[in-house]
């Protein structure tokens, strides 16, 4: 291992610190897992102990009482749609911005940049949705999410496209294909790394969002994590069910995370390293 700092004390002190830190993170998850399998009285004790008997039927009860299944389908439907739409629109927009040096391209680049810095104006957006009759509709929620995720996606794509040599474009032009065909057949596949990052990021953003769903969608359109919110209101003294519901809400994210971790980290750091 490269030593860039010389520490007098042994490295084991650092290791100890990290172990403590890691425990701080694992402990809450352990509590959730363990208590989701206990009976009500046991779970309400919020202890560390492994359950005496495994109450898997807590999970079945949760599925019956909460709208977990509906939340799952909502989340997947909205998430996938947003991700696909945002991915394509952002890639196309970034292509234009990165390649065309004209005034309008520069303008749109700054235009989208404001989306990253300026916070969203929720109340006026509510009014817009009202006027367009899009409140509490799938179309409305998806449009809003796409609009919110565009700035960061475009930023990431633009940075990446700039690293693709123009010769590739020119080679395709000689082929005589129409611009949009050329884009999708040749340039877009090259964007795969960024696309994966954008997909992972945007999906997690949509899945875990709180504010947008609270303001713009009714309970029947909420994704899985938000159903925990409804559940909490009804069953606040039943920690066994609550934890089971939380587990159900977390598991898809965890899977996504373990599989896509590399891309998430890459995405975060993409903007933070000077190019």
């Amino acid at each position: 291992m490269k030593r860039t700092f010389k520490f007098r004390s042994a490295t084991w002190l650092l290791e100890a610190v990290m172990v403590v830190v890691a425990l701080c993170y694992l402990m809450p998850i352990w509590i959730v897992v363990v208590n989701s399998l206990k009976d009500t009285l046991g779970a309400n004790r919020l202890g560390y102990s492994w359950p005496k008997s495994l109450h898997f039927n807590n999970y079945a009860q949760v599925f019956a009482k909460s709208n977990a299944l509906q939340g799952l389908t909502n989340g997947v439907f909205i998430g996938v749609t947003v991700v696909i739409l945002a991915g394509f629109l952002a890639a196309m927009a970034a292509y234009y911005i990165a390649r065309k040096g004209s005034g309008f391209a520069k303008f749109t680049s700054l235009y989208f940049l404001t989306g990253i810095i300026v916070p969203t104006a929720i109340i006026p957006t509510y009014f817009t949705m009202l006027v367009l009759h899009l409140n509490n509709t799938y179309l409305g929620i998806i449009s809003i999410f796409v609009a919110y995720t565009l700035p960061l996606s475009i930023f990431l794509y633009t940075g990446f496209i700039r690293t693709i040599p123009r010769e590739i474009d020119e080679a395709a032009i000689i082929d005589g294909s129409r611009p949009i065909q050329m884009f999708f057949r040749i340039v877009f596949p090259l964007l795969a790394p960024v696309t994966v990052t954008v997909i992972v990021f945007n999906f997690i953003g949509v899945w875990n969002d709180v504010t947008t769903y609270l303001y713009f969608a009714g309970g029947d359109k909420w994704p899985l994590p938000m159903t925990v919110f409804k559940f909490y209101g009804k069953f606040s003294q039943r920690w066994d069910l609550l934890f089971a519901d939380i587990m159900i809400a977390i598991i898809p994210c965890l899977i996504f995370f373990v599989a896509g971790q590399k891309y998430m980290v890459a995405g975060i750091t993409a903007g933070s390293v000077k190019s």
Binding site: N57, A60, Q61, F63, A64, A68, L69, I251, I255, A259
Partner: peptide
């Protein structure tokens, strides 16, 4: 990646559908 990821997803999908079916039935 591909092998283990595929298995994990498959197992989880099966488990979720079983639980949902149990829940759905009692409903």
């Amino acid at each position: 990646r591909n092998g283990k990821l595929g298995m994990t997803l498959l197992v989880t999908a099966i488990m979720i559908s079983i639980l949902a079916a149990c829940g759905g039935n009692s409903n």
